[in-house]
Every structure is written in structure tokens, then in C-alpha cells.
């Protein structure tokens, strides 16, 4: 092992190590944030889809009944 480095020499190594850790966490959080913003976009798209379905009388069951997808199936005799 080398003798202990003077503070001005050692400082840059210590700073580099802590910056690497900080950078790693920041990059990870940034990637996760971009994924969350994609989820947010998808929520908006789904909300639009729900709105469109709600305003479409045929798909929404314009006869006053629930839409076909959610109607209970009739028993086959």
C-alpha cells in the first residue's frame, strides 16, 4: 500500500468516488422519471379512449342498455 496521499491529492479521488455514486443515482432516477412520464401519457390516452367510448352511442349502448362488452351473457338453451 502507498503512503497516505496529501489532502489536495486525495481530495480529487474522494470527490470522484462520491460523484460517481451521485451520478449513478441521478441517471437511474432520470430514467425512472422518463418512464413515469410515459405512464402519464398513457393515462391521458386511456382517458381519451374512455371519453370517446362514452360519447359513442353504439358502443356505449345507445338503447339505454350497458355496452355489449359488459352485458351479461344470455344462457344458451
Amino acid at each position: 500500500m502507498l503512503p497516505a496521499l496529501p489532502l489536495d491529492e486525495a481530495g480529487k479521488y474522494v470527490a470522484a468516488a462520491y460523484l460517481v455514486f451521485l451520478l449513478l443515482i441521478l441517471v437511474y432516477v432520470a430514467i425512472m422519471a422518463s418512464k413515469l412520464s410515459r405512464i402519464e401519457r398513457e393515462v391521458v390516452e386511456i382517458a381519451d379512449l374512455v371519453d370517446r367510448k362514452g360519447s359513442d352511442p353504439l358502443r356505449a349502448g345507445g338503447d339505454g342498455n350497458p355496452p355489449p362488452a359488459s352485458r351479461p351473457k344470455e344462457k344458451v338453451r
Partner: peptide
């Protein structure tokens, strides 16, 4: 400060827990 390594030993507190 560590007697042997001095200030460089501070890396220990981020490196080893990680």
C-alpha cells in the same frame, strides 16, 4: 481520518455499503 490511508479512506463509506 484514518491513520494509514488518511483522507482517501473516506471512499470506504460509500464503496463498502454499496
Amino acid at each position: 481520518l484514518d491513520a494509514d490511508q488518511g483522507f482517501v479512506q473516506k471512499i470506504f463509506y460509500v464503496h463498502v455499503p454499496m
